Simulated assay, not measured.
Amino acid sequence: MTGNAAPRVRGGPSPASPAPFTTLVELTWIERKIEHWIRFGRESCDQILDRRRRVVGFAPNSLFAFVRWASNDYGTIISRVDIVRAIGPGEPFQTLPFVRPGGEILLKIDGWPKVERVLQLIDAIEAMGLDPVDVAPDYWRHVHNRLTASHEPRAYTAEQHQAWLLRRRAEP
């Protein structure tokens, strides 16, 4: 690749840099060592850095689930899932490793049993025919609070989703 060539991007060439105010997430995949991946989210850009790393971007106000897992010779050392709302210009944000500049963290869970439970809840939402990015942000906060307190979260319902869609439509 020459110095002025555009970076390789899924779906064709892209601008040298993502759109302004894009939240960037660095993903790494080193089999059985480090695995960072996006469980759900609508990517606005995707840049391949090398065969093990890439950077994906998310537009302001979009939701995504970022899963991190790492191990060493003795077993798993980190297992974590974060559900994040990408921020817009001038919004306050929380920092998160591998996420630039950061975002509004709706759910932050670590430890494999709880991470697995979040992944099961995401699967259940998809089984309802819904995209998890369209789920009410308050539901992800509820799941965070319940699992942090070692309680079972309530399932997301079609009625809850309809109420969220009506509320979102009524917001200015």
Rank of each mutant, 00 (worst) to 15 (best):
R68K: 09
I83C: 00
P60C: 03
I77V: 15
F93H: 15
F98K: 15
F64L: 01
G90N: 13
A149E: 09
W140A: 02
A86Q: 05
D50H: 04
R42S: 12
A70Y: 04
A59T: 13
L119N: 14
L63M: 10
S150H: 11
R52W: 02
R146T: 11
I38P: 03
I48F: 03
R42Y: 08
S150N: 13
G88E: 07
V135A: 13
D131P: 05
L27A: 06
F93L: 13
R100G: 02
V115T: 08
H142W: 10
V67N: 11
C45W: 05
R54Q: 08
A65E: 04
V133Q: 15
A136N: 14
G41P: 02
R54L: 04
V135H: 04
P132W: 01
L106G: 06
I122M: 01
Y139E: 00
H144N: 12
E43W: 04
I77G: 05
V143K: 07
G102R: 12
V67R: 11
E35M: 06
V99A: 06
D123E: 11
R80I: 00
S150P: 00
I87F: 06
F98D: 15
S44L: 05
V81E: 05
G102Y: 14
T76D: 07
L107M: 12
W140T: 02
D131N: 14
A136E: 13
I38Q: 05
R100Q: 11
F40C: 01
R51N: 10
W29E: 14
R39C: 06
P113Q: 12
G129S: 01
S150T: 05
R39E: 15
F93R: 10
R141V: 15
L49C: 04
W112Q: 08
W37C: 13
D131E: 14
R68D: 08
R100V: 09
I105F: 09
P92C: 12
L63A: 06
V133G: 14
W37Q: 12
K108V: 03
R42E: 15
P89M: 09
E43T: 13
N145C: 04
G102F: 14
D50L: 03
D134I: 03
T95D: 13
E43D: 03
R52E: 02
L107C: 12
G41K: 02
V81D: 04
R85L: 04
A70C: 07
R85W: 00
L119V: 08
I30R: 10
D134E: 14
L130E: 06
G41S: 04
I83T: 00
F64A: 01
Q94N: 14
D131R: 10
F40Y: 05
S79N: 15
P113W: 10
R54N: 03
N145E: 14
Q47T: 12
D73I: 09
A136Y: 05
P60D: 03
H36R: 15
Q94E: 15
A65F: 06
F66N: 00
E35K: 11
R53F: 07
G88T: 01
P97A: 10
N72P: 01
P97I: 06
G103N: 04
L107Q: 02
L130Y: 12
L119R: 13
R32T: 08
L121K: 09
E104A: 07
